[in-house]
Simulated assay, not measured.
Amino acid sequence: MRGTTVLPGEGNSGLPGEEGMPTHRLEVPMPNALPFAIGTFDTIGPMSRASFPHRHTFHEIVHVTGGTGGHVVDLTRFALSPPNLCFIAPGQVHHWENVTGLEGSVILFTDDFLLDHPADRQALRGLGRHSWLELHDEAADRTARLVADLDGEYRAGAEGFQSVLRALLHVLVVRAARLPAHQSAAAPPTPRTRPGSVAAEFVTLLGTPELGTQEGPLRSVRACARHLSVSESYLSEAVKASTGRTPGELIRQTRVHEAKRLLLRTELSVRQIADRVGFGDPAYFCRFFRRETGASPGDFRRGGGDIHHDHRLESIARAQSPA
């Protein structure tokens, strides 16, 4: 299993100066590979310290332990003052600026890694809005220990390490969310009329519990736009500009994520799960799930979340152009 690339058939090669915002994703074979990686800036690869604006389809947490310069997230510049903890949510645009001596750890994972703790998705997006945390005293020590434990579990790959990684990541997210606001160099509030604000509200809406209800706001782009009091066209433009993806793509991703969680963490039947995620026809749900994941719901459940033995992602360097 290798690193990350731009989405196949989308975007560009991942370098600046080409059409479209460079967009990178974890290249994770489906359905049973581990959508998680941790390493140093050197082992993760040159994209982990990219100096040009780009976005990801995955979450990134950066634990900075050394270096000078700045990190720009959604046009807000944060000065390095190690130790720092940085959270970048899917779709956020960021880059490193005039950085020297950058040291620390990079943690990469997709929403699928959060199946045991689905509420962490919303917490992570909230942390992404603050993005840059300064760590002091006990918080600095605890964070360093947690990151070291994550790295050790990942490299060892011992029996049950997936569950340990998920638990440690959950603790890291919860503790980071507890840090007082004065420790965050947060950007000033964004007016509601700004496209970025509408896109942020839409992403937050995706984390609400109404996904499975017949009248829930996640049933369609139209329903989401109505819930947010904007037109469909404005919502589509705002979300595309902020995340590089359409509202429809993100809604499908959210429904697939919830279906995966229910398949792996409950005893509900496929018919019941189809109903929970808004599909009245189980056969159509099965076709939808296979199209989005490459596996049927039954095959995905029988896989039980097992992963390939070569679980480590070696880097997020730009991949070779497709043949």
Rank of each mutant, 00 (worst) to 15 (best):
S233Y: 05
V174F: 02
R226Q: 11
A156E: 15
A199M: 06
T213K: 15
R166N: 05
Y234T: 14
L235D: 01
P209L: 13
A139N: 11
V171G: 01
D141W: 06
G244R: 02
A158I: 10
V147T: 08
Y154L: 06
P191Y: 06
L146I: 13
R145F: 11
T208D: 12
F202K: 05
Y154W: 13
A223R: 13
A241W: 00
R125T: 05
G207S: 13
S105K: 09
T246G: 05
T143C: 14
S229M: 08
R194S: 15
F161P: 02
Y154P: 01
H182R: 14
W132C: 04
L228W: 06
L205H: 03
T110Q: 14
L168R: 12
T208N: 09
G104P: 03
S236F: 04
R155L: 13
T246Q: 08
T204S: 15
A185M: 09
L179W: 00
A176W: 01
S184T: 09
A140G: 06
F202G: 01
T143S: 07
H136G: 06
D137M: 08
V173A: 02
W132V: 04
F161N: 04
E103V: 13
R129V: 06
V230F: 03
G248A: 11
R129M: 09
L127K: 05
E210G: 11
G248Q: 12
S229H: 11
A187H: 09
L108D: 00
H130F: 10
R219E: 06
L172A: 11
S231T: 15
L168W: 02
L206G: 04
Q183V: 05
P180Q: 13
F161Y: 15
V198H: 01
S242V: 02
V174R: 14
T193K: 08
R245S: 07
A200W: 03
R145D: 12
E103I: 13
G126I: 10
R192W: 00
A176E: 03
R222K: 12
G207H: 09
A186I: 07
P188N: 05
A181Q: 14
R222V: 07
R222N: 10
P191M: 07
H136C: 08
R226T: 11
F161S: 07
R178V: 05
I107Y: 03
L218V: 07
A156S: 15
H117Y: 15
Q183S: 09
L127I: 11
V203Q: 07
R166V: 06
C224Y: 02
Q162R: 15
E210V: 05
G152T: 13
G160P: 05
S184D: 01
L169V: 10
L146D: 01
